[in-house]
Computed example of a mutant assay.
Amino acid sequence: MEACNAYYYATRDPLGEGGDFTTAPEIHQMFGELVGAALADVWLRAGKPGDAVYAELGPGRGTLAADALRVLRRSGFAGQAHLVETSPALREAQSKRVPEAAFHDSIDSLPAMPLLLVANEFFDALPIRQFVDGRERHVIVAGGHFAFDRDGPIFEDSPMRQSLAETLSWRLATHGGAAIIIDYGYAGGEQGDTLQGVRCHQYSYVLDHPGEQDLTAHVDFKALADAAGRGGAAASNIASQGTWLETLGIGARAMTLAAKNPQDTEAIAAARRRLCDEEEMGRLFKVMAVRSKGWPEVAGLSA
């Protein structure tokens, strides 16, 4: 999974109609603006530390960063933007939307400063392990094709996700700041096979087209919260994306945008439904904050 996704993301821009999937920031600006508003609010309540920086893990095309930073700048935030991205194709797109950004290959090289960090649909693409009856499932070659070596009831975990969450938590605990993690997944305890491939906006068998399709698996937010605790930071409640966005005021923002752009009223309403409705992204996608214990809670995610 790690090898396939490394090649996949390094060789293309996978987003949009001409790609394989669409993320929330690409649906409408309201998403990034509300993320930016939540970060601006927690920064203001933390006392407006002047050395704080914006950071994002896996920033896609830079759309979320551009929308969030626009709101942050209006609040008086003047910190630098730091993007953790390894794909040359996506770095090029990000540099057009956030030309002032500094790029990083990993979280380890982010500055030792308070972070206002976002990770949207980042953890789902990190590699997982699967176990059947307590034995790890492997990929083998059978009949000239990739195949799994065993089947049955599956349990998944992801040491890489937990390690990165613990590292992020340690940085927040040591230097201050808050992180907002948004992804599809579950609150904890669920079991089963969630590994999936997506190609041309359609589900695809995970062992087909190696390196030519997006491979993801549902995120165990409880495991991330536990890892954050081990790193010394505080994890928030886990909320559904729809509930969180509605709590932050996406309805009011949609009305304001529609009043200014009446010709876009229907498109704005459709975007809100796609982001918030339970049968769309609203329930499957979850939101959790991780913060330094010296920083206030992120709005809408009180523990």
Rank of each mutant, 00 (worst) to 15 (best):
residue 199 R to E: 04
residue 178 A to H: 05
residue 260 K to T: 09
residue 48 K to N: 09
residue 116 L to E: 07
residue 280 E to H: 13
residue 166 E to H: 04
residue 144 G to W: 13
residue 174 T to Q: 13
residue 92 E to F: 01
residue 260 K to W: 00
residue 173 A to P: 02
residue 296 P to D: 09
residue 69 L to K: 08
residue 38 A to P: 06
residue 293 K to M: 10
residue 119 A to K: 09
residue 237 N to K: 13
residue 95 S to R: 14
residue 97 R to V: 02
residue 78 A to Q: 14
residue 284 L to W: 11
residue 63 T to D: 08
residue 205 Y to F: 01
residue 210 P to I: 12
residue 279 E to N: 09
residue 2 E to N: 10
residue 18 G to W: 02
residue 216 T to V: 08
residue 221 F to C: 11
residue 157 D to W: 02
residue 263 Q to P: 00
residue 142 A to L: 12
residue 180 I to K: 11
residue 237 N to I: 07
residue 23 T to Y: 01
residue 209 H to M: 05
residue 260 K to A: 15
residue 61 R to I: 09
residue 216 T to A: 14
residue 170 W to D: 01
residue 200 C to N: 12
residue 59 P to W: 00
residue 271 A to E: 08
residue 271 A to K: 06
residue 119 A to N: 07
residue 15 L to A: 02
residue 289 A to F: 02
residue 104 H to W: 11
residue 263 Q to V: 06
residue 15 L to W: 12
residue 199 R to N: 02
residue 9 Y to E: 10
residue 118 V to A: 15
residue 159 P to I: 05
residue 214 D to H: 09
residue 64 L to E: 06
residue 189 G to C: 06
residue 91 R to T: 00
residue 126 L to C: 05
residue 267 A to C: 01
residue 176 G to R: 10
residue 64 L to H: 01
residue 102 A to Q: 13
residue 192 G to I: 09
residue 264 D to A: 14
residue 129 R to W: 08
residue 104 H to A: 07
residue 63 T to M: 07
residue 265 T to A: 15
residue 4 C to L: 05
residue 277 D to A: 15
residue 12 R to W: 11
residue 199 R to S: 12
residue 35 V to H: 01
residue 93 A to K: 12
residue 252 A to Q: 14
residue 15 L to R: 01
residue 67 D to K: 05
residue 64 L to T: 09
residue 58 G to I: 10
residue 102 A to V: 15
residue 272 R to W: 00
residue 247 T to Y: 09
residue 278 E to G: 11
residue 212 E to V: 01
residue 45 R to D: 12
residue 209 H to K: 12
residue 68 A to H: 03
residue 80 Q to R: 15
residue 9 Y to A: 11
residue 279 E to W: 13
residue 148 F to Q: 10
residue 96 K to M: 08
residue 207 L to T: 09
residue 215 L to D: 04
residue 147 A to I: 02
residue 84 V to K: 11
residue 263 Q to L: 12
residue 122 F to T: 12
residue 91 R to L: 00
residue 252 A to F: 05
residue 175 H to P: 00
residue 130 Q to V: 03
residue 211 G to Q: 07
residue 56 E to H: 04
residue 196 Q to L: 12
residue 264 D to T: 00
residue 125 A to K: 02
residue 167 T to C: 03
residue 227 A to Y: 05
